[in-house]
Each structure stands twice: as C-alpha cells, then as structure tokens.
Amino acid sequence: MADLKDRVEGLRKAFEAEALKVGDAKSLEELRTAFLGRKKGHVTLLFEDLKTVPAEGKREAGRLINELKESVTVRLDAIEGQLSLAWPSVSGTSAEAKLDLTLPGRKKYVGAAHPLVLFQQEIENVFLGMGFTIEEGPEIETDYYNFEALNFPPHHPARDSWDTLYIKDDLLLRTHTSPVQIRVMEKKKPPIRIIIPGRVFRRETPDPTHLPMFMQIEGLVVDEGATFAHLKGTLEYFIRALFGEKIKVRFRPSFFPFTEPSAEVDIECIVCGGQDKSCRVCSGTGWKEILGSGMVDPQVLKNVNIDPEKYSGWAFGLGIDRTAMFAYGITEMRHFYENDLRFIRQFGAK
C-alpha cells in the first residue's frame, strides 16, 4: 500500500516535470500517451496493479489513482488550451518567436442598453440612495386618476396643457405619471417616499422637442412636517448629483393644479452658460427649465383621505427624454425612438 502511494507521488512529480517541458502539440500527445495511454500509460498500469492490492487497501488506493488520473487529465487539457493560443515554444525575440502583441484584442460583444433606460436608472439611483422606493402604474388610466383626483376640475382650461389621447370617454392614455401618486396614496399611509418612472402620452404634434409619447419620472413625499425647504434641498441635491456640484439651480413660482405652492426648477444652461443670445437650448436666458414641483395640493390629499392638517407633501416631475437631451446635447427627441443602433450603442456599448 505504502509502496503504491509512493509510486503515485513519484508519478505525479514526474508528470509535473515533463508537463513543464511541453511546447507543442506533438510533445503534448507524447506526454498524454505516456501517462494515460490505454495499454502502457503509467496511470493505466497503476489501475492494472490495483487488482493485486489487498481488499482492505483497495478503496483508498483506487481513490489515489483516480485523483492522479483526474489531475493529469485536467492539466493536459489546460496545456492543450494554452497551446491553441499559439503559446510560443520558446520565449524570445527571434523573428520566428516574434508575437505581434499589437493586434487588436478579442472582445465579447455586449449589447447596449437604451439611453433613456440608462438615464432613468441614473436618476433612480440618486433617489434610491435617499431612501425613495420605486412605484409604477398602468398606462391606460381613468379620467379620475389622471385628472380629477389631481384637482383638475372637469372642463377646466388647465387640462389644455395636458392634451389627451382618449380610448373611451372615461378612459385615456395617462398624460403624466401623477395618477400613480393617487394610486399609491390610496393604499399606503404616510410616510410615503416614492419615485414613479414610466411612459406617458400626449396629443402633441411631433416636433424636435415634443412627441406623443415620452418618459417621465416623478417623486412624492408625504409626511408630517414635509416642507417646501425639503423640496428645495432634495431637488438641489438631485440636480447636483446629475449635473455636477457647481451647477446653479433656481426655483420660481409656477402653476400645477395638483400642487400649491408650485415651483418650476431651472438650471444654468450648460450649453452656453447664458453667454449666447441665440442659444438653442436657453434662448440666451442662461436658464433651462428642468422640472416642475410643488407642495401637494391639500385637495389632492383630501381626495385620498389623508388629513392635510396633519400631513403635508411635496412632489416633482421631469421628462426623462428632455433632460437626457439637455445632458447629452441631443437636438431631436425622436432619435430616442428611431432605434438607430448607431445612436443607441454610443451610450452603452460600441
């Protein structure tokens, strides 16, 4: 038994020594035959010898031999793999041994994610880091969720800014992601701290910055003591996370039926910095409108049975497409939906 064990060890060392010398396919095959050849291979012969081992040692001896066989096989396969990479028989600088290391590398092609998805994820990640969770909702909505619960009275001109594609009288394609605010507030109690990404639809005649379908993301916080100061601080942080520490941000009064007070948020024009009077992006004002926001209108809270005396809330929304256009200097919104792979691959893979 001890004798066999020694022989196994001896063979292992001998194999290792020989393996180091293998330089080409021929010497590899010779080594394989020497150790694993069906008739005279060293390892094969060991199996022959196993028959003579007394019964009590047979099991252990079998294990040792099998292990040796396995490690030899694995090593031989590995060497074969290396040889197929044209491992040079000798290292060196002779003309024959010269390897052109400047040839291009071999890349696995990895697909490119859609730029709007990437940008949406960037935005989501900022808010996920601030303890927000993601909610979603249906794209076909009722008038109640899309308008009425959000404090748009029927037949109010405020609806004109949310031009709607209708399915039936009471059924429409949501014009914003805000109906999800209502759906979430109906089933969850404050504190609520969510963001809502999704496709939205408007009856817009297509032009470079308007399309009948686009992506929006909005956020909602409802809690005791939520203030306009929180809205400002959080959105400023978000904008800096997206556009850099130094970007200037301003909040100015605006109107949305579902917030009161309402604020439009502008950021400094990163294209011209307000220096170009004919700037396509900011028309020379130096500011670019980036998102709408405000304190949740008390009527909206009442509509979902949240007491506006006890709780307050703030919300915001932005167009992912337009923000991405601004961030990347894209002038045509429709590029996002043409799905030209030469466009898409610039953002993810090449």
Binding site: K108, Y109, G111, A113, H114, M213, F336, N339, R345, G348
Partner: peptide, 11 residues
C-alpha cells in the same frame, strides 16, 4: 445585454 442584444424602445 450580455447575450449581445441591444435594447430599443418603440411606440
């Protein structure tokens, strides 16, 4: 993406 498919968004 790992399988080499690119992502698109259609109407």
């Amino acid at each position: 993406l790992g399988q080499g498919f690119d992502e698109v968004i259609n109407w």
